[in-house]
């Protein structure tokens, strides 16, 4: 029996569209998402741009409030009750790493001043010891010698180094859950794997859980224990990482798999026709939201959204094919 750390229970997020005289339109960014993250687990959330991945992360860190449903952290509702009052405590336990390392550090502050804050705000240590703690955290993420980095400004560091500072800042408060929103997509390919190794190492050492958001299935497979695939605001497939890749069920996951560069598979001349794009979330297609792009479309697909059902142990899929 594993401990559930985070639980999303029918979590739904709609954004209001502000348009003159048309006040009833909503962007349905997240619709009835049910997710669980266990302690010490890496769950990867995969999907195209605009599928609601980042919204999910932002709702969890309370950047956007939830429209309906519940989010439980350690069995406590984060929007009502304990964590609503003790929101600082929640923020200490759940931290986020953003996609753009160049944009998420204040360019006018030194690394020291950026990194000092989490320690002081959350009373991690006495002000005298901050320097020592900062150096220790920088060492942990592989920035050595740490003293040399503290007096630098963000523009003096490379993308990979900045992202490490971001990770160090998030790790400073010793969180239990880290939300990583495409942390490697702005980095060079040669640095990405280092970054992922570092994150896995920190997970082993401190037993943190991750929600790792990405659009790259290969990367998700490398880092994650379980993969959840999102399409147009709905969860379409979730299960153990290896099973999702080897025994793909949902047609959308198959599409993602095909689109990923796979030089190891040889040089196929096979072309895909991917002219359609993700549908508008203001007026999503009726029924299964993927049906306009689906190869295996059946008559019932445009009538009702299929239910999530368990196909194998722990492997759920939302599709009429099964």
């Amino acid at each position: 029996m594993t401990d559930k750390l985070l639980q999303l229970d029918n979590a739904t997020k709609h954004f209001k569209v502000r348009k003159f005289l048309e006040s009833n339109q909503k962007v349905r960014a997240m619709e009835n998402i049910n997710l669980e993250i266990d302690k010490g687990e890496i769950l990867s959330l995969v999907g195209e741009s605009g599928s609601g991945k980042s919204t999910t992360a932002k709702v969890i860190v309370k950047i956007h409030p939830l429209t309906s449903g519940k989010i439980l952290f350690k069995d406590r509702d984060i929007y009502n009750g304990y964590y609503d009052k003790e929101s600082k405590e929640y923020k200490q336990e759940v931290q986020m790493i953003f996609q753009d390392p160049f944009g998420s550090l204040n360019p006018t502050h030194t690394i020291r001043s950026i990194l000092k804050r989490p320690f002081l705000i959350h009373d991690i240590c006495s002000p005298k010891k901050v320097e020592m703690y900062m150096k220790q955290k920088l060492k942990e993420v592989g920035l050595e010698p740490p003293g040399q980095f503290l007096d630098k400004f963000p523009h003096e560091l490379s993308g990979g180094q900045l992202q490490r500072v971001n990770i160090a800042r998030a790790m400073a408060v010793e969180p239990e859950l880290l939300l990583a929103d495409e942390p490697t997509s702005m980095l060079d390919v040669s640095i990405r794997i280092n970054m992922m190794n570092k994150m896995m190492e920190l997970k082993e050492k401190n037993n943190i859980s991750y929600l790792y958001i990405t659009h790259n299935l290969a990367g998700a497979r490398y880092i994650a224990d379980r993969i959840a695939v999102m399409y147009a605001g709905l969860l379409v497939e979730i299960g153990p990482a290896e099973r999702i890749i080897q025994n793909t069920l949902h047609p959308y996951t198959m599409l993602l798999k095909k689109a990923a560069p796979q030089p190891e598979k040889g040089f196929s001349e096979e072309k895909m026709n991917l002219s359609t794009e993700i549908p508008s979330l203001i007026n999503p297609p009726t029924g299964c939201r993927f049906h306009p792009r689906c190869e295996y479309k059946k008559p019932e697909c445009d009538e009702k959204i299929p239910d999530m059902r368990e196909e194998n142990e722990g492997h759920f899929v939302r599709c009429y094919l099964y």
Binding site: V189, S190, I191, R192, I193, N194, M196, N197, L217, A218, G219, R221, Y222, I245, Q246, K257, A260, P261, Q262, E264, K265
Partner: peptide, 16 residues
């Protein structure tokens, strides 16, 4: 070696 494969075995690689 710096991109993980989608199929086949996963090797822990260190990049450059």
């Amino acid at each position: 070696n710096s991109f993980p494969p989608l199929t086949g075995e996963i090797e822990i690689s260190s990049g450059i």
